[in-house]
Simulated scan of single mutants.
Amino acid sequence: MWTSLSLWLTVTVICTTQQIGYISAEEFPEDAALDSIGLATKYGHPPIQYNVATEDGYILAVYRLPGKGKRPPILCTHGLMDSTDTFLIRGYTSLPITLADRGYDVWLANTRGNRYTRRHQHLDPDTDPAFWNFTFHEMGVYDLPAIIDLVLNETGANNLTAIGHSQGNTIYYVLGSEKPEYNSKINVLISLAPMAYVHNTPLPVATIIKLTPIITTLVKDLGLHELLGDTTALGRIAHTLCSVPVIGYTICAYGLLYPLVGSDPTELEPEFFQNLAPHYPGGSSIVSLLHYLQVGYRKTFAQYDHGSEINQKMYNSSEPPVYQLARVTMPIALYTAANDGFSSLADVQLLRGQLPNVVYYLLSPRLICNHVDYVWGQTVSYYLYPFIDIMLDRYNPL
C-alpha cells in the first residue's frame, strides 16, 4: 500500500510541476507569496515582531498590530499545523485586520513547530528529534504563558482578550488547568471551533481515531517527527499540488479538506484556495496530532499517553493525568457549528458541561459552517463578527 501511495504522490508532483511550468506568474495571487508580515503590511497594519523564548527554550514569533486607537489587547492563537498566516489570509475582512481598524491592539501568536517557530536555543529541528517531542500540552504550559506575559508587559494591561481557533483553544484549557494563576489574565476566551473532546466526531475522522494504535506504531517505525512542515516531502507536495488552479482545488479541497472539516465550497472558493495553499499547512509535530487521536481513542481529555512504563516515570502513574477543567475559571464563549467535522456539537456540549465559567454559547447561524470557516470563510464578517462583537463589547468597554 505504501509503495503504491509513494508512487502516486511522485507522479502527482511530477505532473503538477510540469503544469506549473505552463502557468504564468500573473495567474497566482499576490498574497500567496506573502508571509504574515507582508500580509499585515499590505492590509494597512505593518506589524511589530517579537521573538519570545519559552521556559524550555523554544523561540516563538509574535506579531503585534497596534491598531489606530487605544483599545485593550487581543491575542489570537491558531490551530494545528497552522500559523499566524491563517488569521490574515482574507485580507481586509480578516478578523485581526478588522479589529486593528477599529483601534484594538491585536497580537498574533505562533506556537512552537510551525514555519515561524522552527527555532530553539539548543535544539536543531532538522537534526534533533527531541525538538519535535511536544504536543498541545507544552503549548499550553510553556508557549502561552510566555506570550501572555509578553503582551501584558508590553501593553501594561492587567489582562487580555483571547481569540482561539481549534487547537488555539485547547491550549487555553490546558493553561487554565495546569497553571490556574493565568485564569485571571484572560478577561474572556472567545473559542472558535473549540477543541478538547473528540469523542463524537463524524466519519472519516472517527475511523482515523479508531486506527490510533496502528498510526502510532507506524509513526514510530518510520521515525517521523515533523508534520507537514515546509521542508518535509509531504509539506512540499501539499503546497505545490494545492496551488495549481482547478486540479489543486479538486484534489485538495474536495478530496482532502472537505471530508475532514465539513464541506462548504461557497465559503472557500477556488480563487481563494489557490491563495491559501502556500500558507497551509504550516507544520507542527506529529506527536501533537497523535495526542488528539489519543483523546478520542481513550475517551479522556488527558496528557499524552507514552505507555505505562514511561507514564510511571513521568507522571508517577501508569495512566496520564486528566486535565482538571474545573480549574479553568476564565470566562469562555463557545462558538460552534453544525457542519464541523472535528469539533462536533456533542463534543462541545461535553466540554460546556465541564467548564465552570461558560458565559456565552453560539451555534453558527450558517448551517453549513465548517471547522475552518471561522478564519477562512468568504462572508464570515457578516455571520460571525457581530457575535464576536457581543463579547468584545461586554469585556472591553470603552
Rank of each mutant, 00 (worst) to 15 (best):
V11M: 11
T3R: 14
E309F: 12
E309C: 07
Y63K: 08
Y43P: 01
L75G: 02
P259M: 13
L65R: 01
L99Q: 04
L276D: 08
D128R: 03
D340W: 09
L144S: 02
G307R: 01
S166Y: 04
S184R: 14
L218G: 09
Q378G: 04
V174N: 04
L334M: 03
V372F: 09
M195N: 11
Y22D: 10
G282I: 02
A206I: 13
L334C: 08
D230Y: 14
E30M: 10
L99G: 00
S285G: 04
N370L: 09
A206K: 00
P356K: 02
L34K: 04
G79A: 01
S381T: 12
Y142Q: 09
T240N: 11
S243K: 10
Y395G: 03
C15R: 11
W132V: 01
K42P: 09
D56C: 04
V13H: 10
L257M: 15
P72K: 14
I208S: 13
L222Y: 14
D221G: 11
I14V: 15
A333C: 03
L80E: 04
H78F: 01
L211S: 15
E178F: 05
D82W: 08
K185F: 05
F387T: 05
R236M: 15
L222C: 13
M139L: 11
I171A: 07
P397L: 07
